[in-house]
């Protein structure tokens, strides 16, 4: 007698197809942009053959100076914002994860996550108004300060998660062996936390690099970051060099996220 070919209790018809559709929807625009960035034709839509001319244009063409400066600004701000926000997040996570409960702990947690909860446009407006009201000149510094704020929760998450997973017996062993709190942190906790800190740093870096709305509001007239430069260019019409830049940023983001992912997973296996 032939056995009935049954379907598992978890299976639902169509779900696999929807998942594939979902992935296609998510990737199609990006992949198409990447493909067309290699288009050997001035017209953006007619395929003229594979070519790197638009990448050349990005680096050496008419607007390349503007984009180069914007990229330098973006990288500078991202590095500094990531460093500062990671330091602040590390400090905060120590207090939150290792500290005993205190009045206002929940409030602090809310505060750390506040930048995530306030809509970006509101943060942008509020920050702009703040700088204007105290007469703070808008420029690279104003961008940096704004970035530090919203980078903190992104750095905090992986760091706190990592710290949670580290048993406190190592610190106790250190203290038992006459280490000061500072030494215990520096020599014992910090190395163990490192994957989380690196992961948080990378996340903060990417988030700062990618930010548009807040940056656009607080940057002032003379300064551009890469996203604002791209936006400005798009407003004038999509040109192929924009697609080249987008592709570059795409690949960079992908690489950075993968590294962040690998670091946090490698750390876990130890």
């Amino acid at each position: 007698m032939m056995a009935r070919v049954g379907k598992s209790i978890r299976w639902y018809p169509g779900f696999r197809a929807i998942t594939i559709a979902c992935l296609i929807i998510l990737y199609a625009p990006l992949i198409i942009v990447m493909i067309y960035s290699f288009n050997n034709s001035a017209s953006i839509t007619v395929w003229g053959g594979f070519s790197l001319i638009w990448y050349e244009d990005v680096f050496f063409g008419l607007e390349s100076a503007k984009f180069k400066q914007a990229t330098i600004n973006s990288l500078m701000i991202a590095v500094m914002a990531a460093v500062v926000s990671t330091a602040i997040a590390t400090s905060a996570s120590l207090a939150m994860v290792r500290g005993r409960a205190f009045r206002g702990k929940a409030l602090t947690f809310g505060l750390i996550n506040l930048p995530l909860m306030v809509p970006e446009i509101v943060t942008a407006v509020a920050t702009l108004i703040f700088f204007a009201s105290i007469g703070f000149e808008r420029g690279v510094l104003s961008i940096l300060l704004a970035h530090i704020v919203f980078c903190i929760p992104f750095a905090y998450l992986p760091i706190a998660a990592r710290l949670q997973g580290i048993s406190s017996i190592y610190e106790q062993a250190g203290r038992d062996l006459y280490a000061t709190p500072g030494e215990t942190f520096r020599l014992i906790l910090l190395p163990l936390m490192l994957p989380g800190i690196l992961s948080g740093f990378l996340l903060a870096f990417i988030i700062s690099l990618d930010d548009f709305i807040i940056t656009n509001f607080v940057k002032g007239a003379g300064v551009e970051t890469l996203p604002t430069a791209i936006f400005g260019a798009v407003k004038q019409g999509i040109k192929p060099n924009i697609m080249a830049i987008s592709s570059i940023m795409l690949v960079v983001s992908f690489i950075l996220v993968s590294i962040s992912y690998l670091i946090s997973h490698m750390g876990r296996e130890k």
Binding site: Y27, V33, P227, M243, M249, S253, F254
Partner: peptide
Amino acid sequence: LVTIPYWVNLLIRTVSMKFL
């Protein structure tokens, strides 16, 4: 795979959609 697109700049994702 599902998470990676999120990490691509929202501006670029929106521009890509516009292009499409």
